[in-house]
Design a protein around this nucleic acid. Structure first.
Length: 575
RNA sequence: CGGGGCGUAGCGCAGCCUGGUAGCGCACCUGCCUUGGGCGCAGGGGGUCGGACGUUCAAAUCGUCUCGCCCCGACCA
């Protein structure tokens, strides 16, 4: 492609409405433009990257035995009413009526549609298993779209759904997809990590997220330094530990009430009393979806994991009760709560068990208890894993490993769905004994456009994007310094033709711009290999090859350049 | 939905508080010059100041309403 004939509107300055680096660079590199909040135009350069990613995804999905199809973007309300999600999904589901006043929605995901298709076809176990996927535009009316392509309302996604006669086979396919996903993200040239994940609103029993590692990621992860355990902090287990020695004392001195005027947070009280925050027992009051208020205890240096709390309390929703509700139910403001004498059900994190020499609120204003001995002074209704895992925790899976904290961008997630949709939508088959059974299902998603943004979050520098070669819009940027000079033009055009014949994807910057402008744009759009043709080099009979990622350069003799470039690209693509 | 911020030329911004009919940089056009990291000089074109209503002799500026966009929070296959 010739730059002058390609629509690449680059920008010198950051757009005012962009916050994160991938958003800024995507706009500045002339790849996307916003048309409405969370909705973007994909310009030619972006589309080339999208196609590259899609090709990798297709090749690996096909290799893994899945088949591509294409479901409609619009689906009828009846299906969603049948699954119950018409009511449950809320405003994120964009609904509209056709001219006959019939309800429809834009598909935010396609479990209903695919399950409907399959239930109309499959009759026998002989027809199972299979895995169907599509690459398609989805629409979710996100509460708050943000960060450019990272969280748009409209986005491109690959979604796959598999159907099986039994759980074991469904698990086998889950493993199959797990490996396919590893290959896909590896081929995309990304540093990523599969992590154990919560199943969320999709439902199901087993799930992994594929997280592209980037400090700017929205998701917090923990991973073991020793084994391959990794999990979203939402999901990460905390290993039950024996008490830390400093909390153990042979005998407990009597409990003592101390004045802590105006000191509400753990940090304030710890500082005021000169005691470490691990010795604190933090008391938080949550309201369940049933309306009950529950006191939740975690150590002062720990955070409550609301997901775990929901599971332990057996409810769908929990939320901090709020100051007013706390005062009404306990007679004290949140900063001075404690488990001793509180009139609420008390649940405690496992780390609270057996604490001696602890500190808690005294359930009266401006006072705390010290020298609290859990076994002597209070008994929660249950001890459980209720806290957020944190860096430094011992690994829950191996001996001697330690968890470290990472941040990631979720670009894929796989689920073992089980029978959730097949049961509600009546997708069944007859087994070998002639009994009707609900189909076992799995589903597997990859956010294509989010992957594009994540790749940039992970691969950029102060000058712009640094594309991994496998998903770069072009392999080579051919940059003549003075394209109107005959000698340079001839060498450039010859090289351009030869490279194209050799199957190298090359963008020729044929614009009549000053070198500085071209170099800056070259760095900005991030094409992996830059080939500069200039008078300086030609005097020595050569052109300059320069890698975007590390700035390494080498000279190639004009006559040998195209062969050398092809070799370098092929070599780099193999890795 | 709650909180905060911003809409002025294609892009990035100033002007608004204290009302008097719009400016800067980049980009764009013309000419000269220059050509290995966003050149230089000279000249030039382009804006119903997001929209509506109001106050006023007079509104980018003050008031009310409205639309759009951004950030934080709640939310999220």
């Amino acid at each position: 492609m010739r730059w002058s004939k390609t629509f690449i509107p680059t920008l010198k300055e950051d757009p005012a409405d962009a916050e994160v680096i991938s958003h800024k660079l995507l706009v500045r590199a002339g790849m996307i433009r916003q048309i409405s909040r969370g909705i973007y135009n994909y310009l030619p350069l972006a589309l080339r990257v999208i196609r590259k990613i899609e090709t990798i995804v297709r090749e690996e999905m096909d290799r893994a035995g899945a088949q591509e199809l294409l479901l409609p973007m619009v689906s009828p309300a009846e299906l969603w009413r049948e699954s119950g999600r018409w009511e449950v999904y809320g405003k994120e589901l964009v609904r509209f009526k056709d001219r006959h006043e019939r309800d429809f929605c834009l598909g935010p995901t396609h479990e209903e549609v695919i399950t409907d298709l399959v239930r109309r076809v499959v009759r026998s176990y002989r027809e199972l298993p299979f895995n169907l996927y599509q690459i398609q535009t989805k629409f979710r009316d996100e509460v708050r779209p943000r960060f450019g392509l990272m969280r748009g309302r409209e986005f491109i996604m690959k979604d796959a759904y598999s159907f099986h006669g039994d759980v074991e086979d469904c698990r086998r396919e889950y493993e199959n997809m797990f490996h396919a996903y590893n290959r896909i993200f590896t081929r995309c040239g990304l540093k990523f990590r599969p992590v154990e994940a919560d199943t969320g609103a999709i439902g199901g029993t087993l799930s992994h997220e594929f997280q592209v590692l980037a400090d700017t990621g929205e998701d917090a992860l923990v991973s073991c330094t020793r084994c391959d355990y990794a999990a979203n902090v939402q999901k990460a287990e905390v290993k039950a530990q024996r008490l830390a020695g400093r909390n153990l004392k042979e005998s407990s001195p009597p409990i003592k009430k101390v004045a802590t005027p105006g000191k509400k947070t753990v940090a304030e009280v710890a500082n005021f009393l000169g005691l470490a925050s691990e010795r604190f027992i933090k008391t938080l009051v949550y309201r369940t979806d049933g309306g009950e208020l529950v006191a939740v205890l975690v150590r002062g240096d720990h955070e409550v994991n609301e997901l775990k709390l929901r599971t332990v309390l057996g409810c769908q929703e929990v939320a901090l009760a709020g100051e007013t509700a706390v005062e009404q139910s306990t007679g004290v403001t949140p900063g001075f709560l404690g488990p001793i004498g509180i009139e609420l059900r008390v649940v405690a994190d496992q780390a609270i068990q057996g604490i001696r020499g602890g500190v808690t609120g005294a359930n009266e204003a401006n006072a705390h208890f010290v020298e609290v001995d859990q076994e002597r002074d209070f008994t929660p209704s249950v001890f459980a894993d209720l806290r957020m895992a944190a860096a430094g925790d011992p690994c829950p899976r191996c001996e001697g490993g330690t968890l470290e904290a990472r941040r990631g961008i979720e670009v894929g997630q796989i689920f073992h769905l089980g029978r959730k949709y097949s049961e509600t939508l009546g997708a069944t088959y007859l087994d070998a004994e002639g009994r009707e059974q609900p189909i076992e299902m799995g589903c597997y998603g990859i956010g294509i456009t989010r992957l594009l943004a994540a790749a940039i979050e992970q691969n950029h520098d102060g000058n712009g994007i640094i594309w991994p070669l496998s998903i770069a819009p072009f392999h080579v940027l051919l940059l003549p310094i003075q394209y109107r000079e005959k000698a340079i033009l001839e060498v450039t055009d010859t090289l351009y033709d030869e490279l194209r014949k050799r199957g190298v994807e090359v963008l020729l910057d044929d614009r009549d711009e000053r070198p500085g402008v071209k170099f800056k744009d070259a760095d900005l759009i991030g094409v992996p290999l830059r080939v500069t043709v200039g008078a300086k080099g030609l005097q020595r009979g050569g052109v300059e090859l320069r890698w975007r990622r590390d700035g390494n350069t080498e000279e190639a003799i004009v006559g040998e350049a195209s062969g050398k470039i092809e070799a370098r690209i092929k070599e780099a693509l193999k890795i």
